Computed example of a mutant assay.
Amino acid sequence: MHLLHRAWWADALSADRLLLAAKTAAAAALAWYLAPLVPFAQNEYSYYAPLGVLVSMYPTIARSAFTGLQTLIGLAAGIGLGLGAQALVGIGMPRIVAVAAVVGIGVLLAGLRSLGSGRDWVAIAGLFVLLLGGADPDGYSSSYLITVAFGVLVGVVVNLIVIPPLHLRRAEERLVQLRESLGEALRTMGDAVEARAFDPEPARAAAAGLADALADVREEVALADESRRYNPRGRRSSLPRDAHRRRLEALAVAAESTRELTAAVAELTDADDVDRRLPLEVRHSLATAIHALAGLVSDRAGTDTGVLRLHDADAALDDYVERVQRVSASTASDRVLTLDRWDAGVALRRAIDACRPLADAAATSAPESG
C-alpha cells in the first residue's frame, strides 16, 4: 500500500530546499560583502555575518525571524558570560578553570527552554569571547554580536523579498496522498470482506502505517500554516487559513476509525463460523459500506462528486445497520456477536461523519501554488 514513501534524497533535492539553499548562499555572500560597512563593528570580524545568515534562514519567514532573535539573545547571554570569565582571568583565575566554568554554566543555561534556538549558542559565544577576545574582549564582543545581528537581518530580508516561501502546495499534495492511502486501505478491506478472505495482520499493519503517515503529514500542514505568517504571498491566497488543518483532523479521525473498523472486522471474521457471525447479506452490505467509505475518503476535496459519495456512504451504512438489526433480532441471545457487528457500524459512522466536511466543495477550494 502506498503510504507516502519517498526516496531518501527527495527532501534534500526538493524545489523548496533548492530554493532555500540558493537564497541562503546569496544572502551569506551579500552579508559578508556588506559587513565591513556595518557601524560599531570591526572589519576583521566580517566572517560572522554569513553565520548570522545561516542561523536565520529557515523554510518560513516567521521561523527565520523568531529563530534569529532567539539566537541573538543566546549570543548576548554567552557574551556576557564570556566577559565575566575574562574579567575573572584578569584578576588571577586560571584560564583552564574559566573555560570549564563558561562551558558548565553555558550548558546549564541551555536548559532554559525560553531561550529556544539561542540556548545552543550560550556556551559557544562564551568560549569565543574568552578564547578569541584577546586583548580587546569588549571590541570583539560588540563586533561579534553586531555582525551576527547584521547577518540575521540580511537573512530575514532576503527570505522575505526573494520568493517568500509558501508551502501550501506541498501540504495539499501530502493530504491528497494520505487520502489515497486511506482509501486504498479501505478498498483492500472491503474486497477481503466481500471475498470472505479477510486477513487481520496486513490490515493492522496498514492501519499502523497510516498512523506514521499522519505524523508526517501533520508536519507538512504545520509548516504550511507557519509559512503564511508575515508572508505577503500568504495574504493573497484564497485558501482559508485553517483549511489544511481541518482536512487533516478529519482524516485523522477517519484513520483512527479505520483502525477500529479493522479490529471489529477481525473479531467478526477471525473464526471458523464466519457465516454465522456475518451472514451473507450482512457481509455484502458491510463490504459495500466499506467501499463507499473508501470512495468518500479518496475523493479530492472540492470536487463535485463529494456530495454524491457522501450520500452513497450514508445510504450504504443505513443498509448495513438495517440488516444488522434484522439479524440481531433473530439471534438476540448472542450479544457478543451483536456488539461486534455494531462496533463495525459505529466505526463506519465516525469515519463518514469525519469526512462530511471534506465533501463541502465551498469550504475546501483548491489552494494556489506555493
Rank of each mutant, 00 (worst) to 15 (best):
E219V: 06
L293H: 09
A65P: 07
A351T: 07
A266R: 05
I91Y: 05
R169I: 00
G52K: 00
L37C: 02
V154R: 02
T305R: 13
S298K: 09
I61K: 00
A35H: 03
Q325V: 01
D314T: 01
L268V: 00
A125T: 08
V217K: 00
A21N: 08
G118N: 08
V282A: 11
A252P: 05
V336A: 09
A271S: 12
Q177R: 13
L186P: 09
P50I: 01
A197G: 10
A294R: 08
L127D: 01
A250N: 03
L13G: 03
P94G: 02
L51C: 03
G155L: 01
A208H: 13
V217Q: 05
A211K: 11
Y45Q: 07
T305M: 03
L239H: 13
L248W: 04
G116S: 12
M57A: 15
I105S: 06
G151W: 12
R246A: 15
P232I: 00
A211L: 06
V193T: 06
R63S: 12
A347W: 00
P36M: 02
A366Y: 14
E184I: 00
T364A: 12
L268G: 12
I352R: 02
F198S: 03
A243K: 02
T60V: 03
V193S: 08
A361D: 06
E194F: 06
A87S: 04
G118R: 10
R169D: 02
V336W: 04
R259G: 10
L54G: 06
L69F: 15
A315T: 12
P357L: 15
A254N: 08
Q325W: 04
E267I: 00
V253P: 03
L37K: 04
G82W: 00
T269R: 10
A287D: 14
D360A: 10
T305Q: 14
A85P: 00
H5D: 14
Y320F: 12
L160F: 15
T188N: 15
A344Y: 10
D138G: 14
L339K: 14
V217S: 08
Q70H: 09
A12W: 04
A101G: 11
H284L: 03
H244Q: 10
L168F: 13
P94L: 00
A62C: 06
T188M: 09
R233D: 02
I96T: 01
L19K: 11
A49H: 04
S14R: 09
A289M: 09
R277Q: 07
S237C: 07
D340E: 04
A361K: 14
Y58L: 08
E194L: 03
V274R: 15
A351E: 15
P165S: 08
L339R: 13
A205C: 01
I352P: 05
H291C: 07
V102Q: 07
D304M: 11
L34W: 10
A41N: 01
L109I: 08
A15M: 00
S227Y: 06
A25V: 04
V282L: 09
E267F: 08
G133D: 04
V107L: 11
T147D: 09
L261M: 05
V274T: 10
D314G: 04
T188V: 01
P165T: 01
L268W: 04
I146Q: 01
Y320A: 04
A62L: 02
A62S: 13
A363W: 13
S64D: 10
L109A: 06
S64N: 15
A351H: 05
D225F: 05
A359D: 12
A224P: 14
D304A: 14
Y45F: 15
